[in-house]
Write a protein that binds this DNA or RNA. Sequence first.
DNA 1: TTGTAGGCGTTATCAA
DNA 2: TTGATAACGCCTACAA
Lengths: 345, 345
Amino acid sequence: MLRLAPNDTVTIKDVAKAARVSPGTVSNTLTGGRPVSDATRRRVEKAVKRLGYSPNMVARSLVNRRSHTLGVVTSGLELFGPSHTLLGIERQANECGYSLLLNLIHDPFDANVLPAVTALTARRVDGLIWAVPEIGTNRSWVTRPLLSRLPATVFLSMGRRPQVRGVSIDNRGGARIAVQHLLDRGRRVIGLVAGPLAWWEARERRAGWREALALAGRDTSPTLVAEGDWSAASGERGLRDLLARRPDVDAVFVSNDQMALGVLRAARALGRSVPGALAVVGFDNIPEAAYFTPSLTTMSHALVELGRFAVKSLLHAIEGTRSDGAAERAEAEQLRPILHVRESS
Amino acid sequence: MLRLAPNDTVTIKDVAKAARVSPGTVSNTLTGGRPVSDATRRRVEKAVKRLGYSPNMVARSLVNRRSHTLGVVTSGLELFGPSHTLLGIERQANECGYSLLLNLIHDPFDANVLPAVTALTARRVDGLIWAVPEIGTNRSWVTRPLLSRLPATVFLSMGRRPQVRGVSIDNRGGARIAVQHLLDRGRRVIGLVAGPLAWWEARERRAGWREALALAGRDTSPTLVAEGDWSAASGERGLRDLLARRPDVDAVFVSNDQMALGVLRAARALGRSVPGALAVVGFDNIPEAAYFTPSLTTMSHALVELGRFAVKSLLHAIEGTRSDGAAERAEAEQLRPILHVRESS
DNA sequence: TTGTAGGCGTTATCAA
DNA sequence: TTGATAACGCCTACAA
């Protein structure tokens, strides 16, 4: 026996000795790998409890080549979207008996994802959830050869790509609903305060804005678009720029609630009453939105469900369980944003 | 050879074969465990690159009995505080070469922490960061015998306890600063919209409110205190209740910014101008606070630093590195909240 | 400076 | 129904 350090952890062998069975039998009682007689089962269970034994998952992972761990790579955890999505991911994973290895990307523009990926694959995660928003070329690494070196992976918030598992909310549809609501309210010239257009989600919401207006035969010229960076400050600037170019604007769709807050502030400063002279609709339905002045009409989306959906989809791939088409369609249905009408429109 | 599945992963043996050295030598070139000649080092490195070898951390963890993984248990990730703290935890851990195993508690009141703890200890985390806020009796399990069965652990946001490693921001001092600011502004009757008083942090902020007023010889009677639940809705209710009892109130300290948002709304509805008839100070300095109407005076605190500090403190215990007293005091200094004066006061 | 062998804690195969 | 035994991939003490 060559022992590096006095080992105080209790192993399966200790339990086996205490229960006077073989380690294999202990393993089988614990995992149900094969039948065990009631008598020995009781002896083993008593020994487990007495010794306070808890299986070493590291060893188990090594021999099983399954860690029951999912890697999550995300970014901007301080924001509403990513934190809520992570919430859903964690819940679903937890309920399915998986642990989460978390890795945060600090510069989401960065396409150099290798450190994060290797940190997770080296730890032999069974699957990967890529929740970093698609920005600029930061998904250029998603190519067949590289993907084949990864474990099963699901991407969040990404346009459809062949051979790539992806889930996202219906940003475009949500924006259409928001803009249609403004049209229904009789607004005629509807501006857009967009998120940073390097982001896929910002572009999708812009597309929805454009589609709804085009369908109604309204103006969709670029002069009606101001680009922000998701912050309230940029929303304030955005509305000022927009109104300077287009004083005829009588409504704006704002791509997130923080920017909408800035828009409300700018409108007040400029003496445009909301909703009288300017109707405003946001996106996200952050908890504070109902307490803005005036309270904000906005779109909510099921971010927690999105996270859950990502995990389900991933586990389906990992465990090879049968896909239930109906269930998946039901899920997808949930990911359509919902309009909440408040004072601002 | 007994092989369960055709194994396509490249192991240290494959590298050894390719470089025509022994597995031990490969290990030593990679980990620097003992000196290796330059010639073989180059051969090994070439083989590693050619085969795309990446060490299996699971196997490494098993033999080293060190996973280089930290367990994080937290709750309320959708809130400002927890998400920012987690951000700091992840950054510091990442920089120090540790991965994070994340576990969320869905009911923070729950004192049954065993599932979370065993999920992490079974995976042999080297340390544990307990970031669930201290609420009611949900830390009653923190006792010597139980702690001794855990790996090195650091608790966030907890009152001082003997033998327990804990870090937190100076809630009490921050509240004192906020209230002192209102006194400096010439306010005479200063109310408190508190967080849920089952929370340790809410009690600390109340204590700071009381201390600052007592020192100035002002009223600290319970009629000046309204208890909320951190939400904007509860802040709105809180101010209404408070003013109904004490119409003489000319300022309020609100224990977080969300509730302060509700307070601002209630003040407007009640015709109390802010800051003319009522000065308001919040706590947290959420990004939106500067865009409230009026913009909100509030306390910022270094939550990201708090998370980093927790990790540093934990790694110090794990790795037994020498503690730098001066550095620690400098850290602690950073954890004092800072006042941001805006329109609301 | 390098190779060999044993063991980290667990599961799976084979034989009983 | 159970027990020995050989892996899982890696590291390290010992021998060379």
